[in-house]
Design a protein around this nucleic acid. Structure first.
Lengths: 141, 141
DNA sequence: AAGATGTTACGAAAGCCTTCGTAGTTGCAA
DNA sequence: TTGCAACTACGAAGGCTTTCGTAACATCTT
């Protein structure tokens, strides 16, 4: 008996969320301009409006309708949402194995030395965390 | 002027491809059994059949209809298909940054020491490749 | 030969997502 | 005040995906 979990956004909804995450709260007009720029063609204004209205019902965005031009802002966090989508994707495409996904992402794609270094740093952090807070994992060898 | 590229499989199609990749060529009956087992509930036999017929039209599978029970097999490779889906997903969800995806996958998820080691090995391989075949990348520091 | 069983082909329904047209409203300008 | 421009709300169409029912056909058994 409480707030329903925020649902998985669709493609168009995710595109809008990306705009909101990147630029902060915005009017339909502003969002629509960003979308039109990001794509090849113009996006119908009412299309963007409609999707935002659906997103409002789903709880993906909030809006401030004090002014005539309503201002929308993301109601879900970027990392959480990405994590949710990632889970589904890993399940459907890689049988739930995050390792396979990472291997594929790094393997079949050119990765710069910079990025590799960042990943190395992350690996170190994770291993430190594993061995300090979780000494019984499987750290032999 | 030639063969159209194989289209992006839908969720149900991907599920079937996973069965075919894992078990090799199979009849509709066998595929349907696998799907029913993998899910909670029974999958309608004709549902599986229908999807396979659509996949055949799209070029995602081939079939041998020499026998009365046709035998289907994947017509697209696992790695290629996963790579295709991964590209779309990275674009839509992480703005095209494979690095962000990897960080998220490794960060918000417990990863075993085994897996970390495998990733380290892959990183080494990649760096070796980068520095041998591409000495001018950006390897200062 | 006849019937039961299993298989393919096909049509269609239901649901979801995206898109857009239209109507109604509000605010501003002349 | 009248008219124009911008905005919201809403309905509906179109497309795609998934699901299933039904019909037609082949195969095997008795």
């Amino acid at each position: 008996m409480s707030k329903a979990p925020p649902p998985k956004p669709t493609d168009a909804e995710l595109e809008i969320l990306n705009v909101l995450w990147q630029h902060g709260p915005a009017t339909v007009r502003a969002i629509n301009d960003h979308l039109s720029q990001r794509r090849q063609a113009e996006v119908g204004y009412t299309t963007t409006l409609k999707i935002l209205q659906l997103m409002l019902e789903k709880g993906l965005v909030r809006r401030d309708d004090a002014d005539r031009s309503h201002v929308y802002r993301a109601a879900v966090r970027e990392q959480e949402t990405q994590g949710l989508l990632l889970d589904k994707f890993v399940d459907a495409t890689f049988g739930g194995s995050a390792l396979k996904l990472v291997m594929q992402a790094l393997g079949s794609r050119q990765t710069s030395a910079d990025e590799l270094a960042q990943i190395r740093r992350l690996l170190n952090d994770i291993e430190i965390q594993n061995s300090t807070s979780n000494p019984d994992d499987d750290e032999r060898a």
